[in-house]
Design a protein around this nucleic acid. Sequence first.
DNA 1: CGGAAAATTGACTTACATCAAACTCAGTGG
DNA 2: CCACTGAGTTTGATGTAAGTCAATTTTCCG
Lengths: 247, 247
Amino acid sequence: MYASHLAPSTSGAPLPPFDIQAGPSTLASAFASRPMETLAAGEAAFWEGDAASHAVQVVDGCFRLYRILADGRRAIMGFVFAGETLGLSCQGTYRYTAEAITRGQVRRLGRSQLQAMTEGSERLRSLVLAHILEEMNAAHHHIIVLGQMGAEERVAHFLVSAAHRTGADCECPVAIEVPMTRLDIADYLGLTLETVSRVMSRFRRDGLIALEGRSRVVLRRMSRVQELAGEVEEDLCSTSCMTAWPH
Amino acid sequence: MYASHLAPSTSGAPLPPFDIQAGPSTLASAFASRPMETLAAGEAAFWEGDAASHAVQVVDGCFRLYRILADGRRAIMGFVFAGETLGLSCQGTYRYTAEAITRGQVRRLGRSQLQAMTEGSERLRSLVLAHILEEMNAAHHHIIVLGQMGAEERVAHFLVSAAHRTGADCECPVAIEVPMTRLDIADYLGLTLETVSRVMSRFRRDGLIALEGRSRVVLRRMSRVQELAGEVEEDLCSTSCMTAWPH
DNA sequence: CGGAAAATTGACTTACATCAAACTCAGTGG
DNA sequence: CCACTGAGTTTGATGTAAGTCAATTTTCCG
């Protein structure tokens, strides 16, 4: 999953001012004038290997980013939620397929236009760079999870991360939407879908979470889940929104 | 390990011209005027959590990049070889400790100076960006290795990657220096040192590699090892040196 | 040469994968 | 509105790759 540390959704918030001189003052505002596009569940915004012609803003919905390996295995590199931006860190060709999990709405911005905008605006340049470095951060985090943690820790991590990114406030209990299937989660965490299911069931039995239907999880004891996640997860409520988009 | 795709060492090559108008034409040349610093084996170039005040060029030696987790586990995020650059993707604070495995020589460049240089030079800016994106690439690659591959595949990957990055030519047999210990490799691959050792022994028994002392590995059947690595490793000899540093 | 760190190898354990069967939804159409 | 359907999920029984613990052996450096 990208950036456990990314700012929560901005889709509902009013857009920041766009100063013609200085360029867009947030990444999101750079997309503001672009037409909206709707994707059905299962449709791809772009495919691995395609020429990376655009950056994509996810206005609504949830995407899985994956590669298919030679033997057919699917590695999910991350998920992208509403309000986040996609494809900024690709040069040349996209390095993963971005597929809508639910129906989604996106805006596309041509790389050449983005390039032109960044040329002119030191501000926007640093915003783009900050975004890319945040993705790096998330990738490092993912590496630690995959390389060092057991199944429970991984799932706990996923849950905490999802709660954080979908902008759930930090009150207990926290309810989160988890539109991805167990298989998605498994392919993301380097586990099997059965193991993911078993761990979730164990969490439920232990009163840590409650499962409501297929795609809703209530974190009943968030602090305990965070504890299980092993605090690689940085401070959740305090600074994150600040650090994600340094002015 | 960073970038299985990074350009091989440039330490021996003559430095490209430095145009005062356009700024440095390669990343390496930006460091050219900086004083050399020597680090003993085990010394750190910087520590996780330190203010990220400098970028570091590794002129000679090999570094491990790691984080220590709360429970004492050590996660190695990557290795850096001679000719590569370090710390470019850190903003604010370093996100890992960079420790010399062997004795090493480095040059440091202040971030503020680098910042100033990039302000003035579109060229350098795109070099730095390309470097960071290459690190992203490597991180994604690492994620796939850790999330999807078995022990043999991981070790095979490590070997191929090391061969590639230390600039070994592609002729068989390829001899590579592996200054890191089995524990280093294990902490990098998400395995135990015993498993790494067993896999290497198996490779040796099967005639794929030969072990010469502690730190030298001869890839006797490179193609077979690459095959084991499962070809996530992109083309090795052809385009890689090109793509790493676009124009 | 001697000693310490690193590496190898073996016996045993365990966490997770695999295989397989039931169960639960959320749509769809009668 | 309700039964039918199939994808998604849960749960169980069993297998296995890799971890753990422990004893040697090798390598390297003073």
